[in-house]
Structures are given as C-alpha cells and as structure tokens.
C-alpha cells in the first residue's frame, strides 16, 4: 500500500486552508487535506474534534467561511450537495442513518436519486447484491428492522448506488459489535479494491491505519499530524496520546 498515487496527479478532492463556523463557534481551523483517486485515507480525532464537520464541508452541506473545497481542481465552495454527489462524491453518514421506515430496496434506490441511467442503476443494484448477499435477501424488509451489521451493509450499498469515485465514511465502526468491526473493515477494503477512493473518519485508529495509505489527526478543529499510515502508526506522540498506550 505504499505505492501511493500521490505523485504528480491532481487530487480528486481537497481542502485548502478551510475554516468553518457554526454561528460564532469556530470549528475547523485552516484545514488542509487531499484525497487522490483510488486512495484509502483516514482522518483520526477524538470526540467533537470536527471530523463530521470536515465531511459535511467536503460534501457541501456546510459552507466554509474561508478557504476552498476543490473537486478535480475546481473550487466548489457554495455549490449544493447535489452538485458534488452528481460528480462522484458520496457520504455514508455517522450511525448509518438509514431511512428506517422505508424498505431496503427503497433505501438503495434513494442512493441513486440523482441518476437517470436506468441500465446503470440496475447494474449497480446487481453489483451490490453480489457484494452483500444478505442485503438481497432482505430487499422488501423495512430497513429499521435490520441488525446493526446488515444496516451497515445497506448504508454502504446506498452510498455505492450513486456510483461514486470517492466515498466519505463517518465512523463506520461506531456502534458495531467487536466481531463485526473486522468484517466491516474487510468490506471497506473490498470496495476500495474496486477502485473507489475512500476517506474514512475513525476513532478506532489502530484498525483504520492498518488498512489506510495515509492519515490526518484532527485536534479541536486543527490538523496536528499529516503523514503516511505507517509513519503514524509508529509515531510515539500519537501512540501515547491517541492509541491509548502509555
């Protein structure tokens, strides 16, 4: 995983000196990060450090007060979320957040809300059935009645239905049983191997770094570490403060 695609090419999605406020509260402070096509990268940070805000800013759900969000070299600040979704950016929200009273099938179809290519949608549905056979068995079931692991699959399936180039995942292992966390990371890797770039926000740093190419560490809205995953894993500072080792 060290043959990083970072050399030369333009990043798919970038943040350049982004500041974000909720009202008067300054959340993100001069955040710089970049995601290259086909990469698997992760953003680490404690509670309320601004991880989810970073994702929402990337997807245009929150507008930066200064600095730029850049997609394929184009500044997309202030563009609606649909603009980014149409161009291949998609989010798997924190806690999966399925449309609970809608069926699994309806959830998947909503993932393809902006698409008009019927054949392509059908093809992607079948791709997801292949990836998650459990989901196929439960298409007609109301998604709120699925188990946690199954909900995670539907949430990933729903995101994949927009045929993304980059998947923003907000704490994919939160709320999952320990046994499922492992499987979940395998699924993420599997999706990654199909060529989708992944930007993953995690508190579970060890696990995330073990599959990622690169990582950033966020502390109260500021990027304090920016390095390859291997280097971060070896970083004594991080190990002490963040990976919970004395």
């Amino acid at each position: 995983m060290s043959d990083s695609p970072r050399s030369g090419a333009t990043p798919l999605l970038e943040m350049r000196g982004v500041n974000t406020h909720y009202g008067a509260v300054h959340i993100l402070k001069d955040v710089e990060l970049s995601i290259y096509p086909g990469e698997l990268v992760c953003l680490l940070g404690g509670n309320a450090s601004g991880k989810s805000t970073t994702l929402k800013t990337l997807l245009g759900m929150v507008t930066p007060t200064s600095g730029d969000v850049v997609l394929d070299g184009e500044v997309v600040n202030g563009q609606p979320t649909s603009y980014l979704v149409e161009r291949g950016v998609t989010m798997v929200p924190e806690n999966r957040r399925l449309f609970k009273r809608l069926s699994v099938k309806e959830n998947l179809e909503l993932g393809a809300y902006l698409r008009t290519d019927k054949d392509g949608i059908q093809r992607d549905l079948e791709r997801i059935y292949g990836l998650f056979p459990r989901v196929y068995e439960r298409l007609a079931q109301k998604s709120g009645t699925l188990s946690g692991g199954e909900q995670q699959m539907v949430a990933m399936g729903r995101a994949l239905m927009s045929n993304p180039r980059v998947l923003l995942m907000d704490e994919p292992s939160m709320g999952l049983a320990p046994a499922l966390v492992q499987t979940n990371f395998q699924l993420i890797q599997q999706i990654h191997e199909e060529g989708v770039a992944i930007f993953m926000v995690e508190q579970n740093a060890n696990m995330a770094l073990s599959i990622a190419d690169r990582g950033w560490v966020l502390q109260t809205g500021r990027v304090v570490l920016d390095d390859t995953a291997d280097a971060l894993l070896a970083n004594p500072e991080l190990r002490a403060s963040y990976l919970g080792e004395a």
């Binding site: 997807l59 759900m61 979320t81 649909s82 957040r97 449309f99 909503l110 729903r158």
Partner: peptide, 10 residues
C-alpha cells in the same frame, strides 16, 4: 425520515 441524510443523497 431523515432530512440531513436526504440532503446528503443529493
């Protein structure tokens, strides 16, 4: 069902 997720779907 969930307004902000609906927004995230575009």
């Amino acid at each position: 069902e969930d307004e902000s997720v609906a927004e995230a779907m575009g």
